[in-house]
Design a protein around this nucleic acid. Structure first.
Lengths: 138, 138
DNA sequence: GTAACTGCAAAATATTTGCATCCTT
DNA sequence: AAGGATGCAAATATTTTGCAGTTAC
């Protein structure tokens, strides 16, 4: 498991450092998505705010995690599936925000639908976020 | 036209003030969505940052405008259709972000699709944002 | 006249940048 | 040893809050 973490970092040409291992571990050990603030809390004063910013940014650039837009101005991050390589990230699944427990999940098995756009519009990417109650909260 | 603006405000039990008229006017005169920053720019030093925050918040509460989540942490606001009343806002259309001109539009004619969720999940709301090139930019 | 709205000041938060030091390779 | 990563300090930017003065009704 710890090896997995090192592997992911190496595969993306990143040096293996304590902060990166710890942040990546947080993502692996929990099913949902994490906002910047969550990471600082869960890590328990361990590392600098700035390191978290920089690490998240690096991970997004490398395609290790991806962002999930939300309506409340708090960007959330979630792990990408293995087949997301740097540059061409394909994020074809639906995101789910639980209005009860406030967690955000990737519904990896639910693919985004095809949308018929009006004439003249071309589609490059689609993002679907469903809000509701998750299976743990009902 | 100016009457429309006053009407909208009155219909929502808001006093008609210069700031509210001006901000509402900005939304009416342009097809896309506006972020907080856009409003400050377009208004040209006219009113206080704080007033913009408070006005936007009020409008969202009353259902005059709604928020559109984006991946880059900049919340955008757009006018709601007439049938959005306070409390039960129905926002059943797709949003479109142009990667060229950076504008955000409401595709009012494109309704959000039905998503089949995994067992145990219930849906309260759905948000669909498509990124691509709009008809003006291609 | 009263309640609601605005603008200013200031506080609280959040994010970015520079640089010296430390760690990974 | 060299390059990259971290942590601290500080600069910026963003959002919130309190309060006094102004405006709408």
């Amino acid at each position: 498991m710890t090896n997995d973490i090192k592997e992911i970092l190496k595969k993306n040409q990143l040096s293996v450092t304590a902060s990166r291992e710890k942040i990546l571990h947080l993502f692996l050990e929990q099913p949902g998505a994490l906002a910047h603030g969550d990471i600082e809390k869960k890590a328990g004063e361990k590392f600098d705010r700035v390191t978290v910013y920089r690490t998240l940014q690096t991970f997004v650039e490398k395609g290790i995690i991806h962002t999930i837009p939300t309506a409340d101005n708090s960007i959330r991050y979630a792990l990408c599936k293995d087949d997301c390589a740097s540059g061409h990230h394909h994020d074809h699944h639906v995101h789910f925000v639980c209005s009860s427990c406030k967690n955000t999940f990737c519904l990896d098995d639910v693919v985004t639908p095809n949308i018929k756009l009006p004439a003249g519009y071309s589609q490059q990417h689609i993002e679907v976020v469903v809000e509701g109650v998750c299976k743990n909260c009902r």
